[in-house]
Amino acid sequence: MLRSIFTAIFLFALWYLMSGIDKTLTLVLGAGSSVFAVWIVRRMDDASNFKRLSVHLRPIEFVKYIFWVLAEIAKSNWTVIKIVLSPNMDIKQKMYKVPFSQKSDLGQAIFANTITLTPGTITVEVEGDHFLVHGLSYSLDDHAALADMDRRVSKTEGIVDL
């Protein structure tokens, strides 16, 4: 119940920030529509037997991680730009395996999305306990860099009860 109330408040805040209109009628309509949306979601909860999505993240570690990722994106962007603009594009592409140590699905998704977000590496497939990653300019240092990223993602995920 508490969860539904928080969801409704969050939806209403989102609605207000998107519209920015202060008239009473529109505010009441917005509040009504957010409560209605929460009601529909609760109703579908009863109809389906899906597990509820639970988020286990440490907020401060996650914010630190975002800034680290931004720096990492800048670095790898530079590498890819140099390859694009050089007259003979020296592409050394390779598929390699990257093991991951996250326990929750969310942590694994964050790790895979971060690999894809940094230019130069793309997650292609998830197989058991490792990702299949395609690298544009492959070198042996890539394994160490991705292992470092793996450690940082694992640090952001909190206690997981499976």
Partner: peptide, 19 residues
């Protein structure tokens, strides 16, 4: 446009997507 095959083009597109 320049890269030779599909897998390298993926990386070029991700420059637009991130940076």
């Amino acid at each position: 446009l320049r890269f030779p095959d599909f897998w390298s083009r993926l990386h070029a597109a991700s420059v637009t997507d991130s940076g």
